[in-house]
Design a protein around this nucleic acid. Structure first.
Lengths: 355, 355
DNA sequence: TTGTAAGCGTTATCAA
DNA sequence: TTGATAACGCTTACAA
């Protein structure tokens, strides 16, 4: 069939497979891509030949001929962030299952050059992680206009047409968390916030306020702020919790912006003579690994990085295939552990004991 | 010239540039790739046309036509490691400068599938990070035989032909460190090792021993071992240093396997009533960020992650272009800071003081 | 010095 | 159901 078989070639080409199977090279494509059904007998011959030659279609050639490269990109301002790394892994794992590959960039480099690379290499889609906007709207549009699907974190400061956005369902999440505390009998619930009110991309604080309003009506819950420069460390949790306990000793439950701070809050509470959860309950957000093994283990709002990353792939993939775009909300889940318990019966008693 | 200009096309193609410049499409290639000199006038016309159309050659097509994809891969067992991330950034930055892009994989996934991807996508080269051997020799050979340049960490358990290896020059580094201590008058020098003698991929311990032998002759220096399971934390540094001070109070200088442990060692020394560097000098390895700002700042053997990463790119790039392979040794540099000083004059006096 | 044309390994269209 | 054949956008001999 084929007049020039590559004898020295390391890798088998489609034509080689066709020749071994005794069919046309088009037939090979049809069988392997399942793009057209041929006779079972022919299909088997092709499959056998492909296996025999260890044939794997060349992605480069496929990309040139087809319209997709099966390549995505993940762009973030901070690769080193633990949670971010989980998200990346989750996305990569899911991508790999579907024969996609993910470029990972951290925005510390020359963002403009990255964009250029993404376009010349024709990636199918890109995810742009949380604010602040290290990738300008202009560059985002350049990507979009180059026919690359863009999925951005919801917390970007602007919304662009034909760009998709993703967010965790913080509002529902906080409803779960605060609702759970309410069920346990808590009414005095405080919040430890890393960010102050002016931080436009923090959705957690407003979500907390809304949940409190909906479940307890009007009234301002006690909140401690970390302020600028923003950080979300365990140390900050300790500092804010200590402040909270002295300023608002009536509080019997605390929600913290993330697990690290919640862990710090527990330490601070214990240092101040409060037992967790007997005297005070603590809830975190993120469900980081250490939250499951801390003493006491931490009740937390789960947005597993891995699952989130997998979701990112699914959304991008779907948008690419269907040519769609939209705003996507990913549900969160409250993981109940040891750091939460029923509200103490007698608040006065507890305060007396402490003195 | 060109009979069918793409009017609707988003991106300019080479032919478009040729047509605007009034030359053949080959001329465009020659000028842009500097692969052949044309007349200055033609060159200018091409350059102008390219700029006008914002022309950027399609990497996919270049890859198919040419022999290189300008794509590399970095494979590691642990993305989350801080030092590793620095290396990755260093490599990526250097790669980007040279119009290369780097795939990043962590070996937690399906390594075999990664390899398949790398082959079908025809990456030019791959770096495989430190032991243990998460990537089997078999897969390594599959990559190599697919004409992909492989650069592996020196600490792999086996050496394969036509594969390149890279290592930091620990031997020279320890000669610098121990030599510096000798200059300062130290003779009793101890070592804090995370690994025990059986760890085949730890080059630091043998490097320390060799340096001691060369500079001080025979005799066994005092060494404390962390043992299995291997870890290199600050906590371990504290533990080993405490042990060292009680078992070998005559020691006036310490080298630790890495900066984290060295930092722990300083804390332990101070806790035991020893001043650093007046009573005891401490040297670390790695030059992590915090080593520069600790109190006292840490003298350390520098193998900057960024520089190392850049080096990885350079080596791979060169091996790819030249078709070579080899074993590469990257120099280290001793950064002298506050944690080292002249040896105490009177050892007896110091020990007495302490009692 | 410049242009022509044959690949590169696929996909996909269109007759046979 | 199958087999040619034209893209895809570029590199690179080779010819003019």
């Amino acid at each position: 069939m084929s007049q020039k078989l590559k004898t020295t070639s390391q890798r088998a080409r489609r034509e080689d497979v066709a020749s071994v199977a005794g069919v046309s090279s088009a037939a090979v494509s049809y069988v392997l891509n399942k793009t057209k059904r041929l006779s079972p007998e022919v299909e088997q011959r092709v499959l056998d030949a492909a296996r025999l030659l260890n044939y794997r279609p060349d992605r480069i050639a496929q990309s040139l001929a087809g319209s997709r490269t099966h390549t995505l990109a993940y762009m973030t301002a901070d690769i080193a962030n633990t949670y971010q790394l989980e998200v990346i892994k989750g996305m990569q794992t899911e991508a790999l299952k579907n024969d996609y590959i993910v470029y990972i960039f951290d925005a510390a480099g020359d963002v403009k050059k990255y964009v250029s690379h993404l376009i010349t290499r024709r990636v199918d889609g890109i995810f742009v992680s949380a604010a602040p906007d290290f990738l300008s709207d202009e560059l985002l549009c350049e990507l979009r206009d180059a026919n690359i699907k863009v999925l951005a974190d919801f917390s970007r400061s602007t919304f662009l047409p034909d760009v998709s956005y993703i967010m965790s369902d913080m509002y529902d999440g906080f409803m779960q968390a605060v609702g759970f505390l309410k069920e346990l009998g808590h009414t005095e619930i405080g919040y430890l916030s890393a960010f102050d009110e002016s931080c436009y991309y923090d959705l957690r604080l407003p979500a907390f306020k809304i949940a409190m309003r909906k479940l307890f009506g009007a009234g301002v819950p006690p909140i401690e702020f970390g302020g600028w420069p923003y950080s979300t460390s365990e140390t900050l949790g300790i500092r804010l919790m200590t402040k909270m306990l002295s300023e608002h000793p009536e509080v019997t439950a605390i929600v913290a912006t993330n697990d690290l701070m919640a862990l710090g809050a527990i330490k601070a509470a214990i240092a101040c003579g409060r037992r967790v959860p007997e005297d005070i309950s603590v809830i975190g957000i993120d469900n980081i690994d250490s939250s499951a093994v801390s003493k006491p283990s931490l009740t937390t709002l789960d947005q597993s990085g891995n699952r989130y990353g997998a979701k990112i792939f699914e959304i991008l993939h779907n948008d690419i295939v269907a040519g769609t775009s939209g705003k996507y909300i990913v549900p969160m889940r409250l993981i109940k552990r040891e750091s939460t318990g029923t509200a103490p019966q007698n608040v006065e008693n507890r305060i007396l004991l402490q003195e």
